[in-house]
């Protein structure tokens, strides 16, 4: 059975714009799926919808549990999310408290909580950070600790929202390796194609609220026309400079001598 099934998911923003228009997706257990698309495609919205943070129409099923108001807790126990901004996720005074937050809310006993905290921190290579305050950590360290806070709950599926944004190259490689080696099912939403190429075997492309393509990561990324169509390649759009005031500005922008 697929661990995650999304059928005809639709969500509209409060101002009326359609964020998701009938998205359908199936993810196999243990798979690593990349979810790519340009800014504004609806990737983050899709991830938030899976966890029930945005109200949406359509069905979402995690394993044998369908998402509904009564099953929110169970879904959130099985699915973890690493947000784009690690600061939003590290809200306790120390790293230990943050990683212990999930297990404590689940009602585990002190011994088990401590065990899970060490496990999770070791898994992300942040064992030495256990007593530090989150504010003092570097971007890469925060990202890893944020992942540890999710791993401590032993979820079946881990969602990543732009996991490598604002990371330097070394931290980015480190994090990608972490993502690749996780035993849980992973969905990585990002517009950084290098991350997807390195961490995900399969990829789905979300464009203007719809899944327009799915398949093997390498094949999809190699399709230059497709990448350009969904605004994911640094394509040459030969834009003619349009003066905002209908051409009567007198070419004020630019060094003297250039034609405007």
């Amino acid at each position: 059975m697929d661990v995650l099934e999304i059928d005809d998911l639709t969500h509209t923003y409060p101002d009326g714009t359609a964020a998701l228009r009938g998205v359908s997706l199936r993810v196999e257990r243990g798979a690593s799926l990349g979810l790519i698309g340009p800014n504004g495609a609806g990737k983050s919205t899709l991830l938030l919808a899976v966890l029930g943070f945005v109200r949406s129409r359509g069905t979402i099923r995690v394993g044998d549990v369908a998402l509904s108001r009564d099953t929110l807790r169970e879904i959130r126990r099985r699915v973890g999310i690493v947000f784009q901004n690690a600061d939003d996720q590290l809200f306790m005074p120390t790293v230990f408290d943050d990683v212990a937050f999930g297990p404590l809310c689940a009602g585990l006993r002190e011994g088990e909580v401590c065990r899970r905290v060490s496990e999770a921190l070791e898994a992300v290579g942040a064992g030495h950070l256990v007593d530090r305050a989150p504010y003092h950590l570097s971007g890469g360290e925060k990202r890893r600790v944020a992942l540890a806070t999710v791993l401590a709950m032993r979820p079946e599926v881990v969602l990543f929202d732009e996991p490598t944004s604002s990371l330097d190259p070394a931290s980015r490689e480190q994090f990608i390796a972490l993502v690749r080696d996780l035993p849980a099912t992973r969905i990585v939403a990002t517009h950084d194609l290098a991350t997807v190429a390195a961490a995900c075997s399969r990829t789905a492309i979300l464009f203007e609220g719809r899944i327009v393509a799915q398949g093997n990561t390498g094949e999809l990324l190699a399709d230059a026309d497709l990448m350009q169509r969904v605004q994911l390649s640094g394509a040459t759009r030969a834009a003619t400079p349009q003066a905002p005031c209908g051409g009567t500005c007198g070419g004020a922008v630019g060094p003297p001598g250039t034609a405007q």
């Binding site: 807790r73 959130r76 939003d88 937050f101 809310c105 806070t149």
Partner: peptide
Amino acid sequence: RVYWAMLARGFN
């Protein structure tokens, strides 16, 4: 967003 992060980790 912090509230969502708390809910996502089981805060009740």
